[in-house]
């Protein structure tokens, strides 16, 4: 039942994503692409934070590393198709390195450490002008070609991004369904117990960072080609915090959480740009209220309703049992 509705929901959503751009102007298509890029990045963070429980506040650094890798390589004359795997590989290695602090410190201390890493990465992007262009950034980043087809147009690039997002979504889905998914969850729920059951806490912790970083790196590469101009601004600590909020708002550990989170976190404010201050004010307040009322995120609503119904049914059943028992007792004494 739950599985069926999930399949139906996913197919409808996919169909909508395939058809929607034809009804939109190019800005709408751009926004949809923008959304997909952040879904991809947040999917990676959801693995690190939501499934494996590693409180990372440095995800935007990987996003930036991916974007700069592709931009710098393309400026140096290399193809996007070389830049993309390079971005993924560099992020994988950096992700493993950033994972090491997580073996020493957890929760808020880990959040601090990753936040520090992000600040350091951002400083490099801003200050190493000969490579990154500093605050002036890198402009005129080209869009790639695929099998001779130019992805220059908004629509073509949208479908390309959609394809990449779906492929990476399926890969993540497969990973989470494999024993790895359970190992990550075990690591999140109780690392000490997990270790006593043979779960290699060190490997899984590092890999949760590394794989999450790869998703951010690929998203960053797509982002660079989408906006065609990058500067350090979107890769700072603020963006990392925003990505963390996306995961938390959608629902950490819910597969589709990042889809919702990215919509609320970047697409709505981009779309409501004319009222951005108002939006961020409302957004910030909404995050506070969400934490108080729905600490497990928006996608926990169905689970909440189900839990409430179950507890109501259980108490109704208890009440019925009590009444029945009372009635029986009454009969017994009457006889």
């Amino acid at each position: 039942m739950k599985k069926q509705s999930a399949i139906i929901f996913t197919s409808v959503a996919l169909l909508a994503l395939l058809v929607a751009p034809h009804f939109l102007k190019s800005y709408g298509v751009y926004l949809l692409t923008y959304w997909l890029v952040f879904i991809l990045a947040a999917m990676g963070l959801n693995l690190t934070v939501g499934y494996a429980g590693q409180k990372s506040l440095g995800h935007a650094a990987f996003f930036g590393i991916g974007a700069y890798t592709v931009a710098i390589m393309m400026k140096a004359g290399f193809s996007f198709w070389l830049g993309l795997p390079a971005a993924a590989a560099i992020c994988f290695v950096t992700g493993i390195l950033v994972g090491f602090p997580a073996l020493r410190v957890q929760t808020i201390y880990l959040a601090f450490a990753t936040l520090g890493f992000n600040t350091a990465a951002w400083l490099v992007m801003r200050n190493e002008e000969q490579y990154t262009g500093g605050t002036f950034g890198i402009n005129n980043i080209a869009r790639p070609e695929l099998f001779g087809l130019s992805l220059d147009g908004a629509l073509a690039y949208y479908y390309f991004t959609l394809g990449v997002t779906i492929v990476f979504g399926l890969l993540l889905f497969g990973l989470l369904r494999s024993p790895w998914g359970k190992a990550f969850t075990a690591l999140r729920d109780n690392p000490i117990r997990a270790e006593s059951l043979g779960v290699d806490v060190r490997n899984y912790t590092l890999l949760s960072f590394a794989i999450g970083a790869v998703y951010a790196g690929v998203a960053g590469a797509l982002f660079a080609s989408l906006v065609q101009f990058i500067d350090p601004a979107p890769f700072g600590v603020g963006q990392s915090i925003m990505m963390y909020l996306m995961v938390v708002i959608g629902g950490p550990g819910y597969f589709f959480g990042p889809v919702v989170g990215a919509a609320v976190g970047v697409v709505l404010p981009e779309w409501l740009r004319f009222a951005q201050d108002w939006y961020l004010f409302v957004f910030g307040s909404a995050v506070v209220l969400l934490m108080i009322w729905l600490p497990d995120g928006l996608l926990s609503i169905p689970d909440r309703i189900r839990a409430r119904r179950e507890s109501r049914e259980a108490s109704a059943a208890r009440a019925a049992a009590v009444t029945a028992a009372a009635a029986n007792a009454g009969k017994g004494s009457g006889a």
């Binding site: 961020l280 004010f281 910030g284 307040s285 108080i292």
Partner: peptide
Amino acid sequence: LFRYGMMQIVVATIGLSIAMRNGVRL
């Protein structure tokens, strides 16, 4: 939020800071 734990308070105060900053910006 106390019963949910530290990270929930962290997220809520992040939200609060965004709301305060942009509220004043208005």
